[in-house]
Design a protein around this nucleic acid. Structure first.
Lengths: 214, 214, 214, 214
DNA sequence: CTTTAATCGAGACGGTACGTCCCGTCTTCAG
DNA sequence: CTGAAGACGGGACGTACCGTCTCGATTAAAG
């Protein structure tokens, strides 16, 4: 698990007393993912997670502030897997990113959890930050890496202006992530290689022109 | 409001007995939106909605199977407002659709509710269908209308093949709706005219090429 | 069924329109007794009775004011059976009365209903009158008949004073009915011939004699 | 309050966890009696009792299986008050017991509740046992004490046979308790000193004597 | 070796909302 | 006007979880 799991990263922990069980943390997060898959977000209860993890409710509340925080942490672990192998061209890299996202969204635990915590986050500022740090930024990293690689290859021009560059990256990221999520969860249609290819085609031809006119 | 909204689309209702109050339906949906705005999705209670609507809880449960179904119907009504005024060009029409959609997502009652019900729908097949029929298809209509109009103007070629045309429309729809939702709710950044312009530029140049190569 | 079934005995019934179904009355009372036996007083609902009788709830509420009134009427019919055959002596007649009561209290529908409506009647004056008229007085009749018969036989002296006579009859009635009910329902022990014999002995000869003979 | 009153008589309770609050028990039973007085048995609500006792509904359901069980326990406490002061003679002792019992039945909380739970018990075996243990046996104690005292005084002979003795005590108890209950609740007439005197006379000397003296 | 202090499990606590059941009334249509 | 059907506003039900709070029992580092 990543650092900063507890809401206050490490709350002044003056020494003395029995230390917290590290095994409990792992058991809880694993149990959270299991319960999430089995009964879904809205019916997931902290009591059920505690029971499943073989842990007392108290232990759970001592570490997380609530359901959303717990689920974010439980799901965030899965995003550590994300990587972008060099496939040799910008188009192939975009298809790779798309398929990576799709793979993650195909898992039942991410599928359910992601939209739910995003929904919660619309009325919960700290949660929004937590999601951004744990999940969103980890995805965006791939987009940025892809651009850098394309620039190194000469497929894209170097950015003269840092602000505009960031703004464009944000746009691209929203388009890619948004389209994949919408296709997978709202339209509920498969994000397969065929779709990835057609999407990349659409994005790439647009992107080239946009880059030229900007 | 559209006919056949209730969970079973009016299940063979053989006559006899007092008919259901149409006023109650309207009051409940309006109350649902009010309560959504005031206390949000996760704290929304069917009891609170009933009280607000001046209606017994029973009446509510007689018509809807649960919170998600009710909220889908309540929010769906808002999507009837969406229109696509002719702004003279494909680019302007796309910008218009993006801004209209963004306006809708900016409303407090849609913001949280939409993601939440989508999250629920990942583990609830009937709910997924309901969302598709009540909300998604209502938006897709705009994309189709925009294309027809652009074809009439000569901005886009006529579709030779119905299946490919539908597939492209789906892709475009996922890109537009996905990007706007992601920008507005996940990135939590404003979808303003500036963003709409840049997004449309990206999409259009891609679309032209895609159309040419297809 | 006896007269005065409706709470207001016959409410001015201005003619014209469809007359009430007499069959419905019988069906309802029979259904009441059935339901009473099957699910007990506290879980008996008027809706269930109506369904069982093949009658609408409306029909039921048009005729009776509530659960208690209905059950009193349904059970009262059973008390019409009560008779006191001449067994030749006061002792034998008392045993006869005791066994008649016991027989009635042995039926599941009377057993359950009697205590329940009496309980209700402690806070419901009109119900108390209804019970008195429909049930209690019908039992007391037997006691009075037994005394008259004993006086005719010369086993008991004629009453010189009407008031004292009534007072004594009330006392005897409370003792007999009370003892049988208490034995049958509170102590939940069988009221058989053996018990009836011992009770009659006690009543006739008194405790002093009983102590002497034991 | 007597030990082991709860539904399962303290079911092997292996330690661990927060212990049950003894104060809650007392508050609930007291609240039950108050609510009984104020709104009566049939309208008594476990929710209302909980509120009145300043206790969560859960706490109440954790300890009692239902309304009947709770009321039996609440009323049973009142029967602990019953005593049999030595009034010098068997007759005086019987009159004392009758009047004490009548006093208890005159209380609004006992009046309705007692008949109601007995009515329930006709279709509820465990409840019948609970009533027997908590209420009936508590009264029977007085009859046994009265007999012993009378035997000590020489008013009654010693019992040669234990079984017959118990059988006679049961009979006497049914007669006394039954008569008082029937007079007070069914006939709904006052159980005053005059009635107690006449009842005792009848019980002691028997109907034959009563007929002779009148 | 103790002490000390925070942990652990267990489970009761005051609450809130649930979804169901029944109440007694009302509204419609059919005879 | 009656009767079946069934929706209506209302209220209580008994259950499930919430997040908090005692408990006695570990458990390890500090004294």
């Amino acid at each position: 698990m990543v650092a900063g799991m507890q809401s206050p990263p490490t709350p002044a922990h003056r020494p003395g007393g029995r230390p917290r069980s590290a095994a409990a943390d792992a058991a809880i997060l694993e149990a959270t993912r299991q319960v999430l898959v089995e009964i879904g977000w809205s019916k997931l209860t902290l009591g059920a997670v505690a029971t499943r993890a073989g842990v007392a409710k108290t232990t759970l509340y001592r570490r997380w502030a609530g359901k959303s925080e717990l689920v974010v942490d439980a799901v965030a672990e899965l995003f550590d897997e994300l990587e972008l192998p060099d496939r040799g061209s910008l188009a192939a890299d975009i298809e790779g990113v798309v398929l990576q996202f799709a793979l993650l969204l195909g898992r039942p635990e991410t599928k359910t959890a992601l939209m739910a915590v995003v929904a919660e986050s619309t009325t919960d500022e700290p949660l929004r930050h937590r999601i951004r740090a744990s999940i969103v930024d980890r995805q965006k990293r791939l987009v940025l890496a892809g651009r850098e690689r394309a620039q190194a290859r000469g497929e894209l021009p170097a950015e003269p202006d840092g602000v505009a560059a960031a703004r464009t990256a944000d746009l691209i990221f929203d388009v890619i992530a948004g389209a994949v999520v919408h296709r997978a969860l709202v339209s509920a249609e498969p994000v397969d290689e065929e779709w990835a290819r057609r999407f990349t085609l659409l994005l790439l031809d647009g992107l080239a022109a946009a880059a030229a006119t900007q």
